[in-house]
Amino acid sequence: MPTYSLVNYKMLAIALAKEEIFAKRGSMICYTGKINFTRSYLAGGGVQNLAMREVTNEELIVMRARGTGKICYGYDGKYVTIIPLRGEMLYIETDSVLAYDSRLQTGTIFQGNQGGVQGIIKGVASGQGLFTTTFSGSGEVAIISQGDAIALEVTQKEPIFVDPNAYLGHKGMLTTQFVTDVNWKTLIGQTSGESYQFKFTGQGTVYIQAYEREKKP
């Protein structure tokens, strides 16, 4: 079983004993021992994934490291957080996934209001939605964020609204919905593209970073 530990707040160490691990491309900092790196793809197959691969392409490439030794990972000065999973489903914004291993089942979904492949492409084009990687099973996932990842609790009593550009991920029994706040829209203006919010209702945890990702052109 690969073991995960934090060297410091920006560096992750993973020890492998004839095992393999998947990590964000370009995140390997150093290693000792005998380890081989090959390219791989995030998430399983399927028609939907093919469509997604078309619209996201690069983001889904990960590097598989296999062998025996110790590898350190870090990415662009971002903070690293290890999230342990015990059977629940974790959703992480694809760009923020740093490392995971094959103990977890992965998938890619598009979180938006439109359905189907066409809806995905439309959603991506308009910026109304997010590509999210799902993890389920028991194990660890390492994620990266600008500044530390902040966990906000959601309870039945109080839904929470999140700027999609600051969203990292979530877990628990949560319903997600994209809402357009007219008030918000007039305030921010067209230029920033910040015309919608992510609404979470139910019981669970939402992870955000204190940073708003810039929109892809």
């Binding site: 906000l152 109080e158 839904p159 929470i160 609204f161 999140v162 700027d163 600051a166 706040d181 008030n183 918000w184 007039t186 305030l187 921010i188 920033s192 910040e194 939402v206 955000i208 204190a210 708003e212």
Partner: peptide
């Protein structure tokens, strides 16, 4: 403007 990242409750934003 644009610095809000999350909120809960009944909050209004105005220019």
């Amino acid at each position: 403007a644009g610095s809000m990242v999350a909120c809960s409750g009944n909050i209004k934003f105005e220019k």
